[in-house]
Amino acid sequence: MAEELEELWKKLSFTEEEAEDIELGSGSTRVAIKRGKNCVVLKVLSHRSISLDTLRKSLRMMWKLNKGMQMFEIEEDLFLVEFGDGKDKKKVLDISPRSYEKQLVLIQDFEAELTPKEIELKWSPFWVQMFNLPLKCRTRETRVAIGRKLGEVLEVDVPESRVQWAKCLRVKIWIDVTRRLVRGKMVTIEGGESRWINFKYEWLPNFCYNCGMLSHALRDCPNSSENLLQKNNNLQDGVWLRG
């Protein structure tokens, strides 16, 4: 309905009274901007409609906030969360990603200049585990070099020595969730042979084993057939992507 109205307005000829400009000064926006510092916008990556009350109750139990929160639907399936203080907001942003009914919850900082329709939620932080690297590659520099090919590197799990001996390398990366999950990368080390480095994602919610997208599960995949659902041994993705 909103899209139809917007297209209709583009075709209208405005009267002189309608075209008269109203100027809003800082006094009209100051309070909202101040309160917005403790706000985030939120969306559940799901094709199903989300109940505000049910989502609110679930997030309150999950987040265990010190000063509570208020939650509002500002656009269809797009929500604004106002926290009691900045510490609760930081806590929630730091523990992302999280899921609701096994679907990824996207959270983004408050942007005062945007209308709800202009807000695009498509990024989420994930800790990515990297396997099958030689011992000489267990460095901070290796983590950053590979991580940058997946998205913006937010954090690197490595001590001050810049080397960490562990089963895998861990990097926190800002990932575009509108693209399929990257299962691994071919890496050439010091001009030698290329080798396959496989990835696993921590706190990975539902995703499609057929097309690798986070927006739906296999049973909802528009590209899957009934035969594929019954014989899923040919699927290109699977539970092994979960770290």
Rank of each mutant, 00 (worst) to 15 (best):
V92Y: 00
V92N: 00
V92T: 02
I95N: 03
I95C: 09
P97M: 09
S99E: 11
Y100H: 07
K102N: 12
K102E: 11
K102I: 03
Q103A: 06
I107K: 01
Q108W: 05
Q108L: 03
D109E: 14
F110Q: 01
E111I: 13
E111H: 06
A112L: 01
P116F: 02
P116K: 06
P116D: 06
E118M: 11
E118Q: 15
I119P: 06
I119Q: 12
E120M: 11
S124F: 03
S124A: 14
W127V: 03
V128N: 09
N132M: 09
N132H: 10
P134D: 07
L135Q: 10
L135C: 05
R138I: 12
R138H: 14
R138W: 15
R140M: 14
R140A: 09
E141F: 05
R143K: 13
V144W: 06
V144D: 05
A145E: 15
G147E: 03
K149E: 14
K149Y: 12
K149P: 09
L150S: 04
E152K: 15
L154H: 05
L154T: 04
V158A: 11
P159M: 07
E160Q: 15
S161F: 00
R162S: 15
V163K: 14
Q164M: 15
Q164D: 10
W165A: 11
W165C: 12
A166I: 01
